[in-house]
Simulated scan of single mutants.
Amino acid sequence: MAYKISDACISCGSCADGCPVGAISQGDSQYVISEDACIDCGACSDTCPVDAISQG
């Protein structure tokens, strides 16, 4: 199950920099994770300073 970014996202870009497969990009109002590209590694969650990323 792919990771999701909540509305708590502050658009800092840390998650995108930490994603080993480039599954994260800037959306309209916050960063978003491509469900098709996400490999469920959790690297993005570990880099988020506001804990806005969770599995699911």
Results as ranks from 00 to 15, higher is better:
residue 1 M to A: 14
residue 1 M to K: 14
residue 2 A to S: 15
residue 3 Y to F: 15
residue 4 K to Q: 14
residue 4 K to L: 11
residue 4 K to A: 11
residue 5 I to K: 02
residue 5 I to A: 03
residue 5 I to D: 09
residue 5 I to G: 08
residue 6 S to Y: 06
residue 6 S to A: 11
residue 6 S to D: 09
residue 7 D to R: 03
residue 7 D to P: 05
residue 7 D to M: 04
residue 7 D to C: 00
residue 8 A to D: 15
residue 8 A to L: 13
residue 9 C to A: 01
residue 9 C to E: 03
residue 9 C to N: 04
residue 10 I to E: 02
residue 11 S to V: 03
residue 12 C to R: 00
residue 12 C to E: 02
residue 13 G to Q: 04
residue 13 G to P: 10
residue 13 G to K: 01
residue 14 S to L: 06
residue 15 C to M: 03
residue 17 D to Q: 12
residue 17 D to M: 12
residue 18 G to F: 09
residue 20 P to A: 07
residue 21 V to R: 02
residue 21 V to N: 10
residue 23 A to I: 01
residue 24 I to P: 13
residue 24 I to T: 07
residue 25 S to T: 15
residue 27 G to F: 01
residue 28 D to N: 10
residue 28 D to T: 06
residue 29 S to T: 12
residue 29 S to M: 03
residue 30 Q to K: 15
residue 33 I to M: 11
residue 34 S to H: 04
residue 35 E to D: 15
residue 36 D to T: 12
residue 36 D to C: 00
residue 37 A to F: 04
residue 38 C to I: 05
residue 40 D to N: 14
residue 41 C to R: 02
residue 41 C to I: 02
residue 41 C to V: 04
residue 42 G to M: 03
residue 43 A to G: 00
residue 43 A to H: 09
residue 43 A to T: 07
residue 44 C to H: 05
residue 45 S to W: 00
residue 46 D to A: 14
residue 47 T to V: 02
residue 47 T to D: 11
residue 48 C to R: 06
residue 48 C to V: 03
residue 51 D to W: 03
residue 51 D to N: 14
residue 53 I to Y: 08
residue 55 Q to M: 10
